[in-house]
Design a protein around this nucleic acid. Structure first.
Length: 269
DNA sequence: AGGGCAACCCGGACGC
DNA sequence: TGCGTCCGGGTTGCCC
């Protein structure tokens, strides 16, 4: 479930810890999590130095001095932990990158993965993604055009990675609540003012989520007080039946294309 | 264009 | 405590 703010938080916290450092060891505990034979993975990754950590949509990119890129997608429930073996939470780990005594653990990857790719391959893999919601070049005008002509439910459009990338189940609901729009609304029924409100809500919600470290419950490292701070600030996600923070009426749980959706029927139109 | 569906995968929740 | 079962979630791809 990690979405844009969670991956952005990981990026920010990982940068000072692994950029400039060599990967001293590799441990692949589940081969399905990687894209090449273990031997090749080790040859391409071990002893390479990390030159940068970046994010694209829900992907985390670890750039190596060889030019290769480690592309991670945590899908549902995957998480990262950085620290020593004794600090690591007792969870099943699929891939471990060692940085001396400390390790970067990829935990609970199910459909998630850590792929080693050339820059070109990585670019191709990410080329279908729509604009990043926080990209300064995504103006309100461009956002309007991205949604133009769509007849889907608002939630479907917001979570469609080709339309706009990085938003998943939680933040689509939070953004709709902030904008005062029902996630079930058809996109082509939205007024110019609605789309404008949606655009502002998208930025407000995602920026606040990033400021508070997203909603991941497990800290990235021992003493990490940033990660997960947004969890308590979610206003509708996974709160079906609970009172709306604005009007007090119970929040509804609905389903849009077989995805759980939460909203307030009173505050959202 | 977009909805429906199956496939992928397994941690966690639930039942007994 | 332990075992079995089932579900969910993002993404891709295919069909209608």
């Amino acid at each position: 479930m990690p979405e844009l703010p969670e991956m952005e938080t990981y990026k920010t916290l990982l940068r000072p810890r692994i950029v400039g450092f060599p990967i001293t060891g590799i441990d692949v505990q589940r081969e399905k999590s990687i894209n090449v034979p273990v031997r090749e993975f080790r040859e391409r990754v071990q002893r390479r130095t990390v030159t940068d950590v970046s994010r694209r949509a829900k992907h985390l990119l670890i750039h190596l001095d060889s030019g290769d890129v480690l592309l991670a997608h945590l899908m549902l429930g995957g998480k990262l932990f950085y620290g020593t073996e004794s600090e690591k939470p007792r969870r099943t780990t699929q891939v471990v990158l060692s940085f001396g005594e400390r390790n970067l653990y990829f935990i609970g990857l199910r459909l998630g993965y850590l792929h080693v790719l050339t820059v070109g391959e990585a670019e191709r893999r990410l080329s279908d993604l729509g604009p990043d919601p926080l990209d300064p070049s995504l103006t309100e005008e461009r956002f309007f055009r991205a949604l133009a002509g769509k007849r889907t439910a608002l939630k479907s459009a917001l979570t469609d990675q080709k339309t706009i990338s990085g938003i998943g189940g939680c933040y689509s609901d939070e953004i709709c609540f902030e904008a005062g729009l029902k996630p079930t609304r058809k996109v082509d029924s939205l007024s110019v003012e609605d789309v404008s409100a949606l655009y502002r809500a998208m930025r407000v919600v995602l920026e606040e989520a990033i400021r508070f470290g997203g909603y991941m419950e497990t800290p990235l490292f021992v003493g990490d007080t940033l990660t997960g701070g947004f969890d308590r600030r979610c206003k509708v996600y996974d709160r079906g039946g609970e009172p709306c923070v604005r009007c007090g009426r119970p929040l509804l749980q609905d389903e849009i294309v077989s995805r759980k959706t939460f909203y307030c029927a009173n505050c959202q139109r």
